[in-house]
Design a protein around this nucleic acid. Structure first.
Length: 270
DNA sequence: AGTCACCTGATT
DNA sequence: AATCAGGTGACT
């Protein structure tokens, strides 16, 4: 379920997995199409023998930095997952790519739908590629003032604005809907028509929703077995069409925006 | 701004 | 059999 919180949790987990500092023994794309339009075999050759120096995240991208100034950018799209296994021979059938380190330890990219993408760039290309992205919503750069200025420049419906990675980086269908619910904003409302107080509320709800979700995602990935429902992120509107709103009891509605489902409460969000 | 394509699996 | 899915980029 990869929006910002899940990608962030994966990033932290990878950093604790003990592969940073290791040398790549072998890289393999089991499904070369996930590198398109790049050539999988060229990425494999470019990575082999290099040291993995750092792993970080920007928006929903995982960035694996290698010696020599190369960056492997992994985007999980809908169903991708990235994790370390102790032995590459334990790979599942959904594994689309794999980076092996010493003693068969392997970083695997699993993706049943194979919509995810892996590309290789130089550090410089990477900077240019990421430059258009909006601010990280959990960084100091993302302030109510910033949101007010950006909002004034956009006539997009609020939900589409939030999902645009070049507005705010990392929000997806679930957390955009949840943030709008908590700020009591109608998802169809054009951004530039929102009052100042609403934008303040929206800023606060984005930060709160994402922080909560990062916490749950980290717990979920650290101890999947004993992960209690109580501490998991729970949605007020997402995927609750026809159920009654947890605050006002009116029925949650589903509408279509930009080809995706948007869930909202007509009572709470005017 | 809307539609499709990319893929596969789950649900209706 | 048809529809839906947490994302994005390339079309119109």
């Amino acid at each position: 379920m990869p929006e910002l919180p899940e990608v962030e949790a994966i990033c932290r987990k990878l950093n604790e997995a003990g592969i940073v500092g290791g040398r790549v023994v072998r890289a393999r794309f089991l499904r070369p199409a996930i590198a398109r339009p790049q050539i999988a075999s060229e990425i494999e050759a470019a990575i082999e023998g290099r040291i993995l120096s750092r792993i970080d995240r920007r928006a929903k991208n995982l960035l694996l930095h290698f010696s020599g100034g190369f960056v492997l950018r992994v985007h999980l799209r809908m169903t991708g997952h990235l994790f370390v296994i102790p032995d590459a021979r334990l790979m599942s059938s959904n594994t689309r790519a794999c980076v092996e380190f010493s003693r068969h330890r392997a970083l695997v990219f699993e993706d049943p739908r194979a919509l995810g993408r892996i590309h290789l760039h130089t550090e410089e290309e990477m900077r240019e590629l990421l430059a258009p992205l909006g601010p990280e919503p959990l960084s100091a750069e993302f302030t109510p003032e910033w949101l007010r200025n950006a909002a004034a420049l956009s006539r997009k419906p609020a939900k589409l604005f939030l999902m645009d990675q070049n507005s705010v980086a990392g929000l997806g269908n679930i957390y955009a809907a949840e943030a709008l619910f908590h700020a009591r904003i109608d998802p169809a409302k054009p951004m530039n028509q929102l009052r100042r107080a609403k934008l303040e509320a929206l800023h606060g709800s984005i930060v709160r929703v994402l922080n909560d979700a990062v916490q749950s995602a980290c717990k979920a990935y650290s101890s999947p077995a004993r992960f209690s429902e109580a501490e998991s992120f729970s949605c007020f509107v997402y995927d609750r069409e026809g159920d009654s709103c947890l605050l006002c009891r009116r029925k949650v509605r589903r509408i279509r925006q930009g080809g995706r489902s948007t869930y909202y409460c007509p009572g709470c969000q005017k």
